[in-house]
Write a protein that binds this DNA or RNA. Sequence first.
DNA 1: TCTATAGTTCGATTATATTCGAACTATAGA
DNA 2: TCTATAGTTCGAATATAATCGAACTATAGA
Lengths: 101, 101
Amino acid sequence: MRQIKHPNMDQVELTDIMYALSDPTRLEIVGRLANAGRKLTCGELDLNRPKSSMSHHFKILRAAGLVETLIEGTEHMNALRVAEIEQKFPGVLQSVLRALA
Amino acid sequence: MRQIKHPNMDQVELTDIMYALSDPTRLEIVGRLANAGRKLTCGELDLNRPKSSMSHHFKILRAAGLVETLIEGTEHMNALRVAEIEQKFPGVLQSVLRALA
DNA sequence: TCTATAGTTCGATTATATTCGAACTATAGA
DNA sequence: TCTATAGTTCGAATATAATCGAACTATAGA
C-alpha cells in the first residue's frame, strides 16, 4: 500500500462530516491540524491515547473527507482538506474551526 | 409539565450540535423547520416514522439547543433556535442550512 | 365527563461506536 | 540484513444509539 486512499468530495455526505466532528477527540485533532498550519504526524498530535485509537479516529476523519494523509517514509503526514470541504460545503468547516478557536 | 425545558446556549457544546446533525432523520427535520419559516408540529413534519421515534429525535435536537418546542394546546410547536445558535457558534447552523438547500 | 388527539416515556431489541492490547506492515537507517 | 519507528488491522469487550410498540399524560372540544 503505497498511499492511503481518500474519498472524492462528491462521495462525501454532510452527515459524514457532522458525525466525524461529533467526537471530542476528533474535534481536538481537527483543531490542532488547523492551528498547526502545516502537516502533522499522528504522533505529533499526542493526545495521550493508544496508537490504535488514534488510527481509528483518523480513519473516520479521512472517510469524512476532512483529513488527507500522505505517507512519507514511516510517517503519515496529516492535513485538513480545508479548501475542498469549503468548496463542497461553504462555511461549514470554517465556522467550526472558528468555534474551536 | 407546563412547558418543555430547553438548555441555555452556554450549556450547549459544539459536539452536541454536530452529533444532533449527524443523523439523516434529524438533518431532515432541521431542513424542513428552516424551510417552513414558521413553527411546525411534529406531526406536520410527517417523516413516516412512529411517534416514539420522532419524539426521540426531537429530544436530541432540543438537548443540542437546535430546536425549541412550545406547547400550545395538544400540539407541540417546533422552531429552530437560529439566532441563538448563530450568536454562540456563528456560521455553523447557517452553513449547514445552506448545504441542505 | 367522555373521547379524540398530540406527543412523551418506558422497555426491549438490535445496530453501531469506542476503546485498546496484540499482532502486523512498511520504511529508514545502521 | 537487522532493528527501530510509525501507523494500521484485528478482535473482543464495553458503551452508546436507533427503533418502535405499548402504556401514559395533557389538553381541547363535544
